[in-house]
Amino acid sequence: MRELKILAVVVFFTLVTYWGVEPFAHSQMHKHVEGHGFTYNGTADTKEAEAGVVKAKESGSKEAEAQAKLEAKKVFWADVEKIAQLQGNAANGEAAFATCLGCHNGSGVNMGGVIPPNLDHAGALYDKNYLIALIKDPAMASNVDHKYEDTMTHPMGSIKTMVTDDQQIADIVAYMQEKMAGEVTSKQAFDEACARCHAMRYAKTTQLGDTPTFKYEKDALAHKIKVIEEQEMVKAYMGKLPPDLSIMVRARSEHFMETFVENPQAQLPGTSMPRVGLSHEGYEKVKAYLEEVGDPSKPAREAIGPWVLLFFVVFTVLAYLWKKSQWKDLH
């Protein structure tokens, strides 16, 4: 009985310490960011702009600009909502999509800082509202308009002059959702949504895709130079080379990853990382790939864990019986 009381005291203080240095300390160290379930309707953007207005008022400078930005955000996302209500026609959309193929053709050529993403599974990976917003104004949709004096200078900014009709936007999105929504693997999801900026060296991929195996060192080096050149372009455009994501699942909490991917500005205000607009299913695919590469021992852990614990439970029971037999004559 006494031993159990002592154990209770030890366990109590251990748990208090654990609670203090883990859950409690981490809750105090990181600001809380509310997720919004991978839906994109501009709520977060408007809130950020509102905060900007408050800040401008406090500092007394650029108040008009902040106010204008808030208005622009409101108008933009209201327009997106309006287009989302339209009935899109996939057949018309297919014809209009030809405009997109000028850049999104899988040629892997850097255009204005990045390689235009492959859209093979765009309908399955990205949210409908986000796609509408992106075609309407890429910088606004990805919440990086702060980077541009005029959002036309965004690498995809010219789309604003190419697709001007709301119905056409609805048609293109309908087409993508119907025809570009096939089964997608977790690796494809990562490649299409992330890989043109983020390398993944533990999976041997770079901004140029999977690294082939070369027979001659000369060819390997030539490829490496191409990768460096591509990385330099991405770096010039983004301000710094986006981090390698090999073990990012272990470096950031699950909540951080989710809210960051939904809206990078929420976790890193001012970052040049665009919102990529993954839908919930799309994000799950990407996450699965990050886990596969960054935490490959998970299946083995889960398979072996119970057996090891069972071993020690049996060990402990036997040890208890041994102890009992050794101590039975002592008291």
């Binding site: 614990l309 020690f312 439970v313 060990f315 402990t316 040890a319 208890y320 041994w322 102890k323 037999s325 050794q326 101590w327």
Partner: peptide
């Protein structure tokens, strides 16, 4: 024998 029992609990 007691140590080993405590170690068993600890290793769980």
């Amino acid at each position: 024998s007691k140590d080993v029992f405590v170690m068993g609990v600890y290793f769980i």
